[in-house]
Each structure stands twice: as C-alpha cells, then as structure tokens.
C-alpha cells in the first residue's frame, strides 16, 4: 500500500470508529506496520493543527479520535449534540479517589471522604465513568470500583499514567496552617 493510500485509510478509520481507535487495531485492520501507522498519524495530527480545519486528532483513552477544535465550542454547542453533563464536585472527588486508589471498596472510599458515597457511585456508574471491577476477598465480598475507558476519554487522558502524581504539596501547605 502506498503511503498516500495508507494515510487516507487511517484517516477514514479514525473518522468512522465509534470509540478511540488504538494503533494495534489499526494495525490488525490495515496490515500496516506500527512505525508507518505512527508516522502517518503524526503527520495527520500536524496537518490538522496547522491547517484551517476545525477538526483535530487527539490521543485519548489509549486510541486516536477526531474531535472538533475547542475554539468553536460556542457555535457547536448550539447544535445541541454531544453536550456533556456537568460533574459535581462530590462526583469529581469520588472519581479522583477511585482513579488513584483503584480498585477500591465503597467503605474505603467513604472513609477517605468522610461521607456516604452511594448516590455518587450510582451516578458515576450510570455515566460509565466507573465500574464494578471485582469483589474483595473479604467478608461480604464487597464490590471493588475502578475507572473505565470512558473516564479516560471524558478527561482527555491517554492512560491512567497521565494522571499527575499525588505530591501532597497542598497537604504540606495545609500543615503549615
């Protein structure tokens, strides 16, 4: 396959894929070698960034996805498509704890937050941001919660490794008071 054709094919795959498409999947579908795929995607990302296009290719949740550029948000929101619901502060707190401590049980989570988490957990499960990933080997076999690929996508993370390390800087500041 010629480079030009490979470029067009990969572009079509990223466009048509309902979820972020990984390099491995592109490789399996096209039969192209990983280096070519990487090179093609990189050049496409640059082209989209430099051109007057309103589209960009981003690496999120372990795959590539086409999105609109943020500067058009005011216009695109009038289309009333794909508008995200807001995530409340308690939900963000819960997500943050699960993201860093996963897999984690509800009581462990509640112990850190100091309040009940039933309602927040249900909401986050409904939005597919977290899931029950197993059961703890403990009396009662409590459910263990983990984040999902939708969580990565929601926050534009390529993987959990992209989350900043918990430095405790603000905790140190807290201690100074």
């Amino acid at each position: 396959m010629e480079y030009k054709e490979a470029k067009a094919l990969i572009e079509a795959l990223i466009f048509a894929s309902p979820n972020p498409i990984s390099k491995n999947r592109i490789e399996k579908i096209t039969g192209l070698d990983p280096k070519t795929i990487e090179s093609v995607i990189k050049s496409m990302q640059e082209r989209y960034m430099q051109s007057d296009s309103g589209i960009q290719i981003v690496f999120v949740a372990g795959g590539y996805e086409m999105t609109t550029k943020p500067k058009f948000v005011n216009y695109l929101s009038k289309l009333n498509v794909g508008v995200r619901q807001t995530i409340s502060r308690p939900a963000l707190e819960t997500l943050a704890i699960i993201a860093y401590k996963q897999p984690i049980t509800k009581p462990e989570l509640e112990n850190i937050r100091g309040v009940r988490a039933d309602s927040v957990l249900n909401t986050l499960i409904e939005r597919h941001l977290i899931r029950v990933s197993g059961r703890k080997r403990a009396p009662g076999r409590p459910a263990l919660y983990s984040t999902t690929s939708e969580f990565l996508r929601w926050f534009g993370l390529s993987s959990l490794d992209e989350l900043p390390p918990l430095t405790g800087d603000s905790a140190s500041l807290f201690l100074e008071y």
Binding site: T67, I97, L163
Partner: peptide, 24 residues
C-alpha cells in the same frame, strides 16, 4: 487534602474537554 489536588486536575481537564466534540 492530597486528593483535592487530583480533584482540581480533573476539574481542569473536565472543563478543557467540555469544549471538544468527538467525531461521528
């Protein structure tokens, strides 16, 4: 308190990615 840093980071990302519409 340590998790509050993570919450701020997630809130920042949530806001940034709110302005982006995925394709298809």
């Amino acid at each position: 308190r340590i998790f509050q840093d993570a919450v701020e980071e997630l809130a920042r990302r949530d806001k940034a990615w709110r302005d982006v519409f995925p394709g298809s």
